[in-house]
Each structure stands twice: as structure tokens, then as C-alpha cells.
Design a protein around this nucleic acid. Structure first.
Length: 299
DNA sequence: GGTAGACCTGGACGC
DNA sequence: GCGTCCAGGTCTACC
């Protein structure tokens, strides 16, 4: 069966998918546009997803009209279909309205590319839990390490797709909560293992509700406070997660951000948090997006 | 509130 | 091939 989901214009699947490196993390798989069409349009995003009913399905997402076309091999119940619609809507931020952002950055040459290319949406996971775990996996490690750890979690703990055991979903909190720290360490998570385990157990037990963080009614300061209360989530990780949650008031400042700001505005001299913050402060509530999509001189 | 050291791993480098 | 050093954010203990 297939589902056609509309998006707030402008929309481009490849612009969302390639907004950052999430598409390289299991169980996402991305066939770039040049691999799927002669004119360079399109692209195919696939992902194995475990539904709350316990069923595991394979999703194939492609550009479709004014939104995205979702193809699922199996027939679904109405509840399962609703769940997939909700998850895809979150993954691709289909309902995000970025017209105010485009208005604010109009006239800034380094951001002139965003609106014509339908950039501004950021690829998310279907659940906040998966986004938080993966963000913890980005800390204090090079990107190749994040890719390796995400793959290990999926390969070792993800529920397989029926008939294709090599294809697995991202493990649900209950699955990770049943493990012990040594097991997660053996998956290559290192010192992050207790952080991920504690989070999974808190979510599985109901002690922590992460999905409530998607509520637009939650004040930004309160959202940040709740994210920082998660072990393993510091300033950088909280700012990154806020971007995924549609709050752009903070710039995720990591070593790359400091390097790029240093090259762009300080002739390569070492810079700290303050200089990065000052570089994007003028964009106010959109500064996170301005940073994210800035066309760096030296990138 | 600010700071130092520990955490873990892969990659770069020198021998 | 082996050993050493370093980079990458966050936590905890300490001042």
C-alpha cells in the first residue's frame, strides 16, 4: 500500500534528508537522487520501523507531488497507518512552516540558497527517544564512531524485518532497558553505555516521557532544562536536540562550529563559545537554523 | 560558578 | 606491527 502525505511548501525530500548526517545512521538508508533518476531529482529513503502493535515494516519514501509518497509492502490496520503517518510527519517535519525564517534571512547572501532549495527542515527520527540516543552517540567521538555505534545498536538489539533478518528497526526503549551496561559497552558505546541504559529504562518504565517534548506549548527554557536533565546530554547535545524539536534559539556549539566561526570571522584564531554565539545572535529565534544552513566560506 | 581530570575509541604518527 | 598521543562533549569532584 502507499500513502501520499502533503507538506507545507516548499518541500524537497533530498533537502530534508541531506540536512545533516542522520541519514547515514542505521536504520536509515538513502539512495541519492543521482542513483534513482537521470535528471538528478528524487532520491529514495528507506527504513525498517517497529510499530507499537509489534509489527515490523519496511518504509520506502520518495518525493511525491507536494509532499512525500510512502510505500509499505504490507497492508496495515487503521491504527498502524495512523502511526506511520505520524512518524513520517515527524521524520520529515512535513508540517513545519518556515516562511518566517525565509522572510528574516532574505537579503543575507550566505543564506540565499535556503528558500529556493527548500532547505530548513531537519531530518528527525520517528521518536524523540531515538533522536536523544543518537545525539548522545555523537558526543566526544568522531562521526565514524557515531555511525558504528548506531549500526551496532540496530544490528544487536533491533527487531528484524520478517523474512529479512539483516534488516532491523531501531531498538525500542523496552528492548534496550532489558540489557545491562556490559552488553551496551560491548556494542562499542563505551562510557555512554550507562547514559543510554538509564534513559531507556526511564522511558520504558514511564518515569520519563520524551515524546511530550514535541509539544509546542512547552516553553523553550523548560524544554532545554528537561533535555539537560538527561545524563549524557550537555549544552551541545541539548542545542542539537532543540533543533530537531523545532526550537532554533541556540546554536549547537561543538569543535566544528568553533573551527568554522574561527575561519569565517577571526582569521583562523581560536574562538570560544562566546564568539560563536555572537556570530549568530542577530538571527534571534532563528539563529540555530541560520548556523545550520550557513554557506561557509571555507567549508 | 568555574575548572581539572576522567571517560572510550579510532585515527594519525613515529619508531 | 606496536606504542603513544590526540580529538571529540559530558560528568563528577573539588575549589
Amino acid at each position: 500500500m502507499s500513502l501520499s502525505l502533503p507538506a507545507n511548501p516548499p518541500f524537497s525530500l533530498s533537502a530534508v534528508v541531506e540536512s545533516h548526517g542522520w541519514f547515514q545512521l542505521a536504520p536509515f538508508d538513502w539512495l541519492r537522487p543521482e542513483a534513482t533518476s537521470e535528471d538528478g531529482s528524487g532520491g529514495l529513503l528507506t527504513r525498517v520501523e517497529e510499530l507499537s502493535s509489534g509489527r515490523v515494516v519496511s518504509l520506502r519514501l520518495q518525493d511525491g507531488g507536494d509532499g512525500v509518497e510512502v510505500e509499505i509492502r504490507d497492508s496495515l490496520t487503521a491504527a498502524e497507518e495512523r502511526e506511520i503517518v505520524n512518524k513520517v510527519t515527524r521524520m520529515l517535519q512535513l508540517e513545519r512552516d518556515l516562511s518566517a525564517f525565509y522572510e528574516v534571512v532574505r537579503g543575507e547572501p550566505r543564506l540565499a540558497h535556503v528558500e529556493p532549495a527548500a532547505k530548513g527542515r531537519i531530518l528527525c527520527s520517528p521518536t524523540v527517544f531515538e533522536d536523544v540516543v543518537k545525539t548522545i552517540l555523537t558526543t566526544n567521538v568522531q562521526w565514524s564512531g557515531t555511525v558504528r555505534m548506531a549500526k551496532a545498536l540496530v544490528d544487536q538489539y533491533g527487531t528484524p524485518l520478517p523474512g529479512a533478518r539483516a534488516q532491523r528497526a531501531f531498538p525500542v526503549p523496552e528492548r534496550l532497558a532489558a540489557e545491562d551496561e556490559a552488553s551496551l559497552r560491548s556494542a562499542g558505546l563505551g562510557y555512554r553505555a550507562p547514559f543510554v541504559l538509564e534513559l531507556a529504562r526511564a522511558v520504558a518504565s514511564g518515569a520519563r516521557d520524551l515524546e511530550v517534548l514535541t509539544s509546542e506549548n512547552l516553553p523553550t527554557d523548560e524544554l532545554r532544562r528537561r533535555l539537560l536533565s538527561i545524563k549524557g546530554v550537555g549544552d551541545y547535545a541539548a542545542a542539537s536536540l532543540m533543533m530537531l524539536l523545532g526550537r532554533y534559539d541556540f546554536v549547537p556549539i561543538d569543535s566544528w562550529a568553533r573551527t568554522m566561526v574561527s575561519r569565517e570571522w577571526h582569521d583562523g584564531a581560536p574562538v570560544g563559545r562566546t564568539e560563536v554565539e555572537m556570530a549568530f545572535a542577530r538571527w534571534g529565534p532563528w539563529q540555530g537554523l541560520a548556523y545550520w544552513f550557513w554557506a561557509w566560506n571555507s567549508a
